[in-house]
């Protein structure tokens, strides 16, 4: 679970906890055009959500959680 980092994209899976936020932030800073896939993300910590909202990477996929979907403008 957590985040799997590929060359051009990161995949959020299952529960993504607060510790992952910083890693994701640094990764996104180093790869500004990378995409983040959220399809299999069940739940993310507010810190992670904050990173996604602040850095606005390309979000691919649609999360199952309707609230998360709205928050990421995937509604």
């Amino acid at each position: 679970m957590g985040i799997r980092y590929q060359k051009k994209s990161a995949t959020l899976q299952g529960l993504v906890c607060a510790e992952d936020a910083e890693i994701l932030l640094n990764w996104l800073k180093s790869k500004p055009d990378a995409a983040v896939n959220v399809t299999r993300c069940k739940q993310m910590h507010a810190a992670v959500l904050q990173v996604l909202l602040a850095l606005k990477p390309t979000i691919t996929g649609v999360p199952a959680d309707p609230w998360l979907r709205t928050a990421l403008n995937k509604g």
């Binding site: 936020a21 932030l25 810190a47 992670v48 959500l49 909202l53 602040a54 709205t70 928050a71």
Partner: peptide, 25 residues
């Protein structure tokens, strides 16, 4: 819960000034 909207409390700091562990929601 019927409706949930999230927005930054203050505008997001750019670049290195952004700290993901300072809650700004």
């Amino acid at each position: 819960l019927l409706h949930l909207a999230v927005a930054p409390d203050q505008p997001w700091a750019s670049g290195d000034a952004f700290d993901c562990y300072v809650c700004n929601l």
